[in-house]
Amino acid sequence: MSWEFKLVAGPYESPLDGPCWDGQGLLFTQVMMPAAARENRILRYDPATGETTDFRYYTHRVMGLALSSTGTLYGCQSTSRRVIRFDADGSAWPMAHKVDGEYHNEPRDLIVDRKQRIWFSDPHAPLPGSRPQFASRVPYASILRIEAPANRDSPVQRMTFDTNAPSALTLSKDEKTLYVSENSTQPEGKRELRAYPVRADATLGVCSVLASFGSDAQGIHPGIRGMCLDRNGNIVACAGGSENGPGPMIYVFSPKGRVLGTCLVPHGEPTNCAFGDADLGTLYVTTSDGRLYRGQGATAAAHR
């Protein structure tokens, strides 16, 4: 399994993330803009014209993006500690932001299920938050779920109780399995691809560890930063680091955790990926060094 990657946007001055196909174009985020620029932004690559345009300014550290089945765009505004909704008129709105009565942490990645509930990872981010911060972080780092995003006072449920550094997440097509990347930067922490059964009562069952990433005397082997599913339900994941270990690459895991293939990106470390184009057959990959790649040639494609 391999893709032929072509650089279609960038290189920009800072890491890219949040690739999200909007039906006709590929949205992605530039998280850290240079000083005096317009404070982070969302860009949009249009494969029909090959052009990349600014989609939204002043997004202030929005990491993951997700589009709901009804066409609503959401983003994880990391250091503002909230999931926000981007409306077509240019406005942006904060979602419910308290779990167990407290402000949640810094959201990283998200997905919207068919009931329009927002599942998101809520790690403790390495970047300092917008100051002054009046609320301490919650004493855990979990997958959380906003039950009714249209309601500003929606309950936010804590879904995982065994995560310490949740990063990427995605749902299987039948929404009966939640895939989570636990991606600790600590040597003693875990870096695992996990599959949690979504139970009928909408809680999560005990997870299966599909893959794990280790460490050595040089340091940790970075785990999965971003992932999506292909048409066959396989997990396409961006993992690995340049410093040591197997190296940065795209992995394709079967739902059971078998490695079906790996693929290198031409430059940098892949940060996140999403399928796009009319047939959802093209894999878009963002990188740590500000590049957006468009990968074609592999047979598998996304279901959503």
Binding site: I84, S91, A92, P94, Y103, P132, Q133
Partner: peptide, 12 residues
Amino acid sequence: RHPGHQDGDIQK
């Protein structure tokens, strides 16, 4: 940008 300071539109 501050969490908890806004209930409405947070676009700058």
